[in-house]
Amino acid sequence: MKNVVILGGYGNFGKRICEALIDLDDVIIYIAGRNPEKAERLKNQLQPKAKAVVKTATLDINDSKFASELSALSPDLVIHTGGPFQGQDYGVPEVCINAGAHYIDLADDRRFVCDITNLDTQARDKGVLVVSGASSVPGLSSAVIDHYREEFSSISTIDIAIAPGNKAERGLATVAGILSYTGHPFPVFRDGIWQQAYGWMDPKVEDFGAFARKRYLANVDIPDLELYPDLYQVSERVSFQAGLELGILHYGMVAMAYLCKIGLVKNWQPLAKPIVAASNYFGSFGTDKGAMRVKIAGIDLQGQDQEISWTLYAPDGNGPYIPTLSTIILARKLLCDEAKTSLPTGAKPCVNLLELEDFNPYFDTYKIHYHSQIRKQNWEQNREQDHNAGQEI
């Protein structure tokens, strides 16, 4: 039996990961966190339909006994969903390495993900894989870029956008992470040089087509902004924006960012709970449709200008499953021994580890659809391709 510990296992993302792994044989899944009642409640929901053995564990990553209590579970794999990761140190992955366990997290914090390589030697010495950022970004976004990379001789721009539906479930940790840099500066690669951008500013509207229509976007700080200029030899720009579906909420955030930028507010993160509570009053408005877009532009193999636009559509409130898929895919590979041939050891961000095809079975399960369009020089040549799970767009 292989032991899997899911920290924050009853949370917004953790519960979805638990659901996706309970069909595995010869696995014990520990739903772990500080609240034993919530863990027990989820266990009782999952156990009747599980092939895996589902157990609970009361663990607090900030407790002095965390290392010994985790080690006592003899974990083969630890999945860390307990955000926000902004401000966290590497205590959790280091404990996992010392316990000889593989480690995966869904971190979205730029420093946490990009600097995880500091643990590379320790992880290699223990023969384990430590992966940070196994989420929509950079896990899925890099898989998309890798899928189309061979169609370019050079890349000039990469632009990524995520637009969740207003009715999608909100995670407190995710909101707290966003608020930590709202109105604060961070470096971006723009016009071929590194410049400053401000969190949740530079608002614009992006048209995602008939399914998700026009959505509001603004600057968000993610690891991709730092990783991709060198990884893909981008010459001009790497950008990422996300937004809220309702204008009143989106531009409320823009206003909050401005107040922070001019110094009237120092940090919005401590107000994450009341801000989430206030936004929930608008939960009946908008849609349950989410979208994600990755645009790659550059020169094709024949020397022509080329742009590839890959757009994903998530219906029925299934958008929150997308951030969990990179972690689920990696976990299944590790637990089914595929890692012996397909995955390295060491510590790294979640880039160049997954293929776009790895996601297709999960997209089908959650009726998620994606569409790609290739546009050539002067837009005279178009080629479109769909992966359709059956829903209308």
Rank of each mutant, 00 (worst) to 15 (best):
K289Y: 10
D300N: 15
V188R: 05
R111N: 14
L356A: 04
F282N: 15
T56N: 09
E392T: 14
A212C: 08
Y10F: 10
P323A: 02
A99Y: 09
Y103E: 09
N352V: 07
A331D: 11
Q195V: 08
D89K: 05
A314L: 02
Y258V: 13
I248S: 13
A143Q: 00
R375H: 01
G83N: 02
Q304G: 12
L325H: 00
L172W: 10
K204T: 13
N118G: 05
T157Q: 12
T157Y: 03
E338R: 03
N12F: 02
I145E: 07
L354A: 10
V131G: 01
A173G: 06
R237Q: 15
F13R: 01
Q269V: 01
S326Q: 00
R293S: 04
Y313P: 06
I322G: 01
K367W: 03
P323R: 02
K261S: 07
Q241V: 15
Q122D: 15
P229Q: 12
T117M: 09
D386A: 10
E37I: 11
P138M: 06
L59K: 03
P361I: 02
I368H: 03
D221Y: 00
E307S: 12
I322V: 13
L73N: 08
S142C: 12
T324Y: 04
N166E: 01
A143F: 04
V188G: 12
E169F: 01
E355V: 08
A72L: 14
S132G: 06
L77A: 07
S342N: 10
T341V: 11
H369Y: 03
N118Q: 14
F85G: 02
G247T: 07
Q304V: 03
V144L: 03
P164K: 04
E94D: 08
A107P: 01
G9L: 02
I79R: 05
P315S: 10
I6L: 08
V5F: 11
R149S: 10
A257S: 14
R383L: 13
R149G: 09
K367M: 04
G209A: 05
G263W: 08
Q88Y: 08
D60Q: 06
K214S: 13
I29D: 14
F211C: 00
S279H: 09
K214P: 10
S239L: 01
K266M: 11
F282P: 12
D230P: 03
V137N: 04
D109R: 00
A57T: 02
K367V: 00
R124K: 15
D316C: 01
V113D: 06
R213W: 03
G33V: 01
K55V: 11
L24E: 07
H369G: 08
V137W: 00
C350P: 06
C350Q: 04
L249E: 14
M256E: 10
S279L: 10
Y10A: 14
V53R: 05
V220I: 07
Y198V: 14
A123S: 13
D207N: 15
R215W: 07
V188C: 08
L354S: 01
I61G: 03
